[in-house]
Design a binder for these strands. Structure first.
Lengths: 199, 199
DNA sequence: AGAATAGAGAACAACAGGAGAACAAACAAG
DNA sequence: CTTGTTTGTTCTCCTGTTGTTCTCTATTCT
């Protein structure tokens, strides 16, 4: 995270103490007065720096729009474990990262999110960069799209077909072929329950 | 939940305290008087804001129709307006329906959700049954995927290309062709900002 | 000196909040 | 049912506030 200057730290502290008191967010003029500033323009630059640092939500023109990115908000949601790309282990990101999902996507069983890398499921409408919500599970039904660990090494997102003794992983990309494994080569790590994409 | 302004909070408090006292809902004129307003028009805007925030039920012309939405009913999320299918107007569903979306998908401008019907955007990974999050807007940049109203009649989800005097709507389906319209045939109703799919 | 940092202040655009007219739907009285 | 009043809705216009963007100046630090 970006390093804060003295002024930015000071502003952030004021915003935080205000938030604790459940007050409505201050206007620029109010903040200026409390800081001893006489120019909103100067303050604006500092606020922008805080937005860049991710400590404050961007306020698109709204009045009294200064909003802290509250600790609560950061804790809500499901853990974002990393990026999943066919052919590689899951590339972990910072443990603490979380992403917010629709309520209906937060089921009773533990779930986590992964960001998809690559086009192996493109025919199922799962694109590079999309977020997938995975329900932790060691078993799946045939036809489910699962996160599968292959030979204890690489992880991939594929549609699964389980036959006695063997497991077939179907990519959804006309340019790729299904892969056939022995049952003990594959460990199911979770089942796809939802997909989220931002434009 | 959307943020309330001073006045809106004040009005909401009055409505709530009235409800506690089992009184019948006030008329606009009564409310105006208690608030020191002299224009019903001004009050109406505030009430509408409360409706949008999901704190008050929409009152379709009824007199003394201001009804609070009970705390349990106050689902957070964005309104789910209906299904959108190429070639038909938006098929409206119950006004009250809402769906929950990731926080990051609830922007500062008003947004709503539609359920996609049909395969016209399948090559973009937008499938039948998916939910799309639309930002209300009458203008869009070239290349944006928009909800477009054609000839005041049918509504569709397409990628837009605006040229002087004409507008081209590109489906994302190899089996369909782009459609060319005069600029005044098309009204942009919103821009695609997010996609949600359940498995 | 030169670059980064802070601030002042003007000018602008977006927004909140209100006034009032005109209209239409709802209601009440005859 | 008809009439007139109340009441909700829509519209345009106005005002002061507030966020944003500039340019210019001063300060600090290497």
């Amino acid at each position: 995270m970006m390093r804060l200057t003295r002024r930015q730290q000071q502003i952030y502290d004021i915003l935080r103490s205000d938030a604790d008191m459940m007050q409505r967010p201050p206007t620029y003029d109010e903040l200026c007065h409390r800081l001893g500033l006489s120019s909103r323009g100067s303050l604006h630059k500092h606020i922008q720096a805080l937005v860049m640092a991710g400590l404050v939500e961007p306020m698109a023109g709204k009045q009294r729009g200064i909003r802290l990115v509250s600790a609560e908000q950061q804790e809500q949601g499901i853990p974002m474990l990393g990026r999943i790309a066919a052919g590689y282990p899951i590339e972990a990101v910072e443990q603490t990262e979380k992403i917010s999902v629709p309520d209906a996507m937060a089921g009773s069983k533990p779930r986590y999110a992964l960001q998809v890398s690559g086009d192996s499921m493109i025919d199922e409408g799962i694109f590079d960069g999309d977020y997938v919500v995975i329900e932790q599970s060691a078993a799946a039904d045939n036809g489910d799209i699962v996160v599968a660990l292959i030979d204890q090494q690489e992880t991939t997102l594929k549609r699964i077909e389980q036959k006695p003794g063997k497991i077939i992983l179907h990519p959804a990309n006309a340019a790729m072929s299904p892969m056939i494994y022995k049952a003990d080569q594959i460990q199911i790590q979770g089942i796809l329950r939802g997909l989220i994409r931002y434009y």
